[in-house]
């Protein structure tokens, strides 16, 4: 089905899409007055590549039973998922302005029952990888489906959760080659640096020891992300994880690398400066 196939946008065009998504993230958070800024801004390229290039999906038929499936395990980064879905055509861009409002389909953390296209309810950390693994097991091993991939995004702070490593063992045991995890490796969590709060490195070695195929990539490089995901798709005998190194708050100069922006939105006056900063990033690409 033509509309379900990935679009043929260039890397440059996708970079522009990612920056439009960033703008939407800033606008929604500023209007909502609460929510998380750093993670969503840092994940814009990852979600853009998945939704606009890699995944087989159809915004007009969110329950299409041959679609690839995307789990957002770090549910607090919901703004970037909502913005990506709206820019993909799942719902009108104007609805982004309802984030966190009473009666909105865009809850503070994603709620599957409210918004078609969401694959799961998430927020409490550590549960997305196992759900994705359960889906992959059902699809790959029981139904012997040879087309569908299951993608799951995780935060790096989230990897403190034991549930993640239970799922990591499970996916390796059953050789879930259709399961592809992407870790937003931005080195921050609420209380500070991930390496201060609860050290994760050597993170690649940890995943390898758990039986996963591991790649490390610049999480803002559209071409590199694409290549890593395509490579992961070709790994059939073990699950794959891509450690996507990102800059928290990417695109907004005064938020970048600052962990204090993990869990707060820009104030109204900061929002305009943030949008200007993103525009500057976009202009820099053109020059």
């Amino acid at each position: 089905m033509a509309e379900a196939e990935p679009t043929a946008a260039t890397d440059r065009e996708l970079q522009t899409t990612a920056n439009q998504i960033r703008r939407s993230v800033v606008e929604m958070l500023a209007r909502a007055g609460s929510g998380h800024s750093a993670g969503p801004l840092g994940m814009a390229e990852i979600l853009t590549v998945l939704f606009f290039r890699i995944m087989r999906h159809d915004p007009a038929r969110p329950d299409w039973n041959e679609r690839d499936v995307f789990y957002l395990s770090n549910g607090h980064t919901a703004p970037v998922l909502y913005a990506t879905m709206a820019h993909s055509g799942y719902f009108p861009l104007a609805e982004l302005g309802t984030l966190r409002r009473l009666g909105s389909r865009l809850q503070g953390h994603p709620e599957r029952r409210l918004l078609p296209g969401l694959e799961s309810t998430s927020g409490p950390l550590g549960s997305g990888l196992s759900q994705a693994a359960g889906f992959a097991y059902a699809s790959q091993i029981i139904d012997r489906d040879r087309r569908r991939f299951v993608y799951v995004c995780m935060g790096d702070g989230e990897l403190n959760e034991g549930n993640i490593w239970e799922a990591a063992m499970f996916a390796a045991k059953y050789r879930l080659g259709r399961l592809i995890g992407i870790v937003d490796r931005n080195y921050i969590q609420i209380d500070g640096s991930t390496e201060d709060v609860m050290p994760l490195d050597d993170l690649a070695a940890k995943w390898r020891a758990f039986g996963w195929h591991v790649q490390e990539v610049d999480g803002h490089d559209i071409s590199a992300l694409t290549g890593a995901i395509r490579h992961a798709q070709a790994v059939s005998q073990q699950p794959s994880v891509i450690l996507a190194h990102t800059v928290p708050g990417k695109g907004v100069s005064f938020m970048e690398y600052d962990y204090t922006w993990h869990g707060k939105p820009p104030a109204p006056d900061e929002a305009q400066a943030a949008l200007d900063s993103i525009d500057e990033l976009e202009r820099g690409l053109s020059s």
Partner: peptide, 9 residues
């Protein structure tokens, strides 16, 4: 949680 993913499938 694996069961939840299977139910979704």
């Amino acid at each position: 949680t694996v069961a939840s993913g299977m139910a979704h499938a």
